[in-house]
Design a protein around this nucleic acid. Sequence first.
DNA 1: CGACTATAATTGGTTGAACCATTGAAATCA
DNA 2: TGATTTCAATGGTTCAACCAATTATAGTCG
Lengths: 244, 244
Amino acid sequence: MTLRAFRPVATRRAFEEITAQIRDQLARQSLKTGDRLPPERDLADQFGVSRNTLREALRSLENSGLLELKKGATGGAFIREGGGDAVVAGLSDLYRLGNIQPEHLTEARILIGTEVARLACARRTAADLKALEANVAEAEAASKAGDLGRRAEIHYEFHSLLARAAKNPVLIILTDALMEMTRHFVEAVGYQPNPYVMPSRKRLLKALRAKDAEAAAAEMATMLKRLQKFHLALYESVSKGKRK
Amino acid sequence: MTLRAFRPVATRRAFEEITAQIRDQLARQSLKTGDRLPPERDLADQFGVSRNTLREALRSLENSGLLELKKGATGGAFIREGGGDAVVAGLSDLYRLGNIQPEHLTEARILIGTEVARLACARRTAADLKALEANVAEAEAASKAGDLGRRAEIHYEFHSLLARAAKNPVLIILTDALMEMTRHFVEAVGYQPNPYVMPSRKRLLKALRAKDAEAAAAEMATMLKRLQKFHLALYESVSKGKRK
DNA sequence: CGACTATAATTGGTTGAACCATTGAAATCA
DNA sequence: TGATTTCAATGGTTCAACCAATTATAGTCG
């Protein structure tokens, strides 16, 4: 049990000092979204460090989703709008590396999805509802067209839209991450038609229109539990197939 | 609405190609936890790239929590055990940059914490229970000693232990991230005594012993809601103070 | 012989200068 | 005016060193 009584006396590397300084300026708002940092050569000078070292710092910040590096005459290092890309990528890594298993994924989807549905019901705007309705219409069109891949993408997007309607960035990011993992899962086991999803979507929309949070939560919970059974069975059969 | 119909035709940078190759080997298990990559100079040779470029790739992988770089004769790039450090750091960034507000944090804690308590009840082992009981005992000791900072750390640890008892890595990582954000929050507003936390912990332990999932969930929910009120009020007053 | 010490080898960290590739704006020309 | 060329700015990459930390090893002393 560490309990952080002391922090490790890590020998701070030069590039870490740089990332810390830039992070600081971000936290104190003296660097805002869209701002451009000076060119690498100037920055290296300012920090009194070689360009290579500075680049490692920028690389680290880029990797954390804080910067975007653009080439060319008007290029440079731009402060990115704070999205959860790094978080999504991190969880996606853990899934691909097997630290998160399908059963963990489906369980988390049930827990989070249910609460997202509940909150979205309470907080959705008219615009949110409209976007969700458009999404379901798109899903139906793709379904009729037999485009399973596209239908899957639209389904992921539905959860993302719903999370946005819930107006909590933690849930938005987490939902996006869960969908990204689900995407990997589905690509591994293959696209399969789920005849019960579309009807569920429509009942969910009805609850959203009526702002009936409990009905929405219940609908989402039963749908996700069915999906869980479906997915885990599929995973089992695919795993068995590979083991042959 | 993008829907990923097409992916951007990103000009892949050399170091990205390298990270992709290494990630691939990690995914296919041909690189396992604890393995050491060849020295940077050799790797640069193998990839047919300069050492600087290779280093940017390693830096990226290190940043993603996949590698650990050690100096010295027996040093090198080691494959790390897959923890959620990158995810925790990512969410922590978003909190510090203001993309996640205290009300989002407290709300997420209620949602996640309640479900964690429910699952932990069902899945806890005897060892989990023992660790949690030891944690509460420690908290009491620190509380009596008047060490608020240490008590706070022990409280964060409690949630982390509970999440581990729930046996779902997604929830473990998310809980750790929420606690890291809470740590930032508490450090900003100052440590304050919460007289109702310790009694709640004991009731929670009782439910855990009895494996009464609903009681545990309810206890956690009411505790976190009280904490939410407490924290948000504190935040308001601190914000007002700063505005003066 | 055993414990300590100096030394060397290994490896990541950093430096500086140079050149490449892309991008967009300015200059040029029809 | 409008299309084309030129060019300057900027990130991407390379190369060849040297620095600094760490550990294995050989050596030294009691």
